[in-house]
Amino acid sequence: MIAHLILRRLLGAIPSLVAVVVVTFLLTRALPGDPAAYFAGPAATPQAIEEIRHKLGLDKSLPLQFVDYLGDLARGEFGQSLTTGQPVAQDILARLPASVELTLAGLILALIVALPLGVAAATRPGSWIDHLARVVSTAGVSLPVFFTGLLLVYVFYYLLGWAPAPMGRLDLFTSAPRTITGFFLIDSLLTGEFATFRAAAAQLTLPALTLALFSVAPLARMTRASMLGVLSSDFVRTARANGLSRGTVLVTYALRNALLPVVTTLGMVFSFLLGANVLVEKVFSWPGIGSYAIEALVASDYAPVQGFILTMAVLYVTLNLLIDVLYGLIDPRVRIEA
């Protein structure tokens, strides 16, 4: 049944993917900068540029260009980066794990804080923890993520000296672990390089915390609201009337049901998180695809920007797919009707 559900969701994601590819293509055509002029070199005659334009297929009609574009995508051909001189696909693949590791670490941190906070606020309405949750929810969404990142750097690096300099995934004296998953935390554990693990964790802490601060708000808010609803529901009353222990009532009965709207919110949270990721990568010189795109933007190097947008969008569609499947795992109503 799960396989059936996944298949259905995969099919359901196809329109989103098509939309993403079309929009990216249109953005690509609108991007300034003439690839033909670039490939022809600075000294080329207009005639030579025209020839190259023809060779690249840029003189064809828009639908035909779209077909070419699809062909390029199918072959994993994202163009060449001017700044790094490498194929964009290769650059992005090399940098993607850094971004994903950071985003996931931020999300996990946020969940660790937001779920208990939301539950505690809902079980004790009007208490100090409820007020705390309210303040966090409103203040959290007001925080400009690049600004909180800088504040954290100032406090924990400059003033207290607890955190390492905000200079990427590892300090200068540590070398990267052998690539297995591309996630430094996991790879260093797998290869048993615990010093590397500690260094990577130290570098990751502040940027992940910045992302977490920002995404705790919507998650805590949703957890609190949905937990409040579930706690006053009839089936929780039944569970209490049957004398089930407080823990069972709270976790097995209330929380599992309350998680459903929270899982739905995750979609929106990921949208914000992936965007905020770009800013956080800039603040912490994090070598992910966000800072790659920013460098390219500044240098008016557009092939990496296209690759970046497409990658982010595909990543986001994939995450939404995972969220759908997760929802189905929790809620039998979705699973069985599939």
């Binding site: 993403v20 929009v23 998180l273 905020a276 947008i309």
Partner: peptide, 9 residues
């Protein structure tokens, strides 16, 4: 279908 900030970029 896009992360909104990325689309804005």
């Amino acid at each position: 279908a896009f992360p909104l900030f990325v689309l804005a970029m």
